Computed example of a mutant assay.
Amino acid sequence: MLRSSIRSFSSSFVRPSYARIQILGTVGNVNFRETKDGVKFINYSLAVDRYSPADEDGKTTDWFNVSVFDEKQILAFEKFLKPGVQLVVDADARQRVVADESSETKYTLTSLKQRHFDVVRYAKKTPAAEEVTEEA
Rank of each mutant, 00 (worst) to 15 (best):
D55Q: 08
D55N: 10
E71F: 15
A54S: 14
G38V: 07
A54G: 03
V68S: 02
D37F: 10
N43C: 12
A54P: 00
A54R: 07
V39M: 12
Y51H: 03
G58F: 13
S45C: 05
K59W: 07
I42M: 09
S67F: 08
D70R: 03
K59L: 06
D62R: 01
E56F: 14
T35D: 05
T60P: 02
D49S: 12
R50F: 14
K59C: 07
A47M: 05
K40V: 04
A54V: 14
D57M: 14
F41S: 00
K72N: 15
G58C: 09
S45I: 12
F69Q: 02
F69A: 06
T60Y: 14
Q73S: 13
E56T: 14
D62C: 04
F41K: 00
D37S: 14
D55F: 15
V66N: 03
D62M: 05
K72E: 15
T35N: 05
R50C: 03
V68F: 06
I42C: 10
V66T: 03
D49V: 09
S67A: 13
Y51M: 01
Q73T: 08
K72S: 15
D37Y: 12
V48I: 10
D37T: 14
V48C: 11
K72W: 15
D57C: 13
V48Y: 11
D57G: 10
F64W: 00
V48K: 05
Y44D: 01
K72D: 13
Y44Q: 01
A47V: 10
V66G: 01
G38Y: 11
G58I: 09
F64Q: 00
K40H: 13
A47W: 08
D62F: 10
I42A: 09
N65D: 14
L46G: 01
Y44P: 00
T60W: 11
F64H: 01
S45V: 12
E71L: 13
G38S: 06
Y51V: 02
T60G: 04
F64G: 00
D37H: 09
S52I: 05
F41P: 00
T61K: 04
D62I: 07
A54H: 09
T35C: 08
D62T: 08
V48E: 11
T61E: 07
G58V: 09
W63I: 14
K40G: 04
P53V: 12
K36F: 10
E56I: 13
D55T: 11
T61H: 07
V48R: 07
N43M: 13
A54E: 14
Y44A: 02
V48L: 08
F41E: 02
A47G: 05
S67K: 02
S45Q: 11
D49F: 09
W63V: 13
K72F: 14
D70G: 03
I42D: 04
Q73K: 07
E56A: 13
D70I: 08
D37W: 07
D37G: 10
I42R: 02
S52C: 04
S45K: 04
F69G: 03
V66C: 04
T35F: 08
K40M: 10
D37Q: 12
G58P: 01
V68R: 00
V66L: 06
E71G: 09
V68K: 00
V66M: 05
K59T: 05
G38I: 08
S52V: 01
T61G: 05
D57T: 15
I42F: 15
S67H: 06
R50Q: 06
K36T: 07
D57Q: 15
V48D: 07
D57I: 15
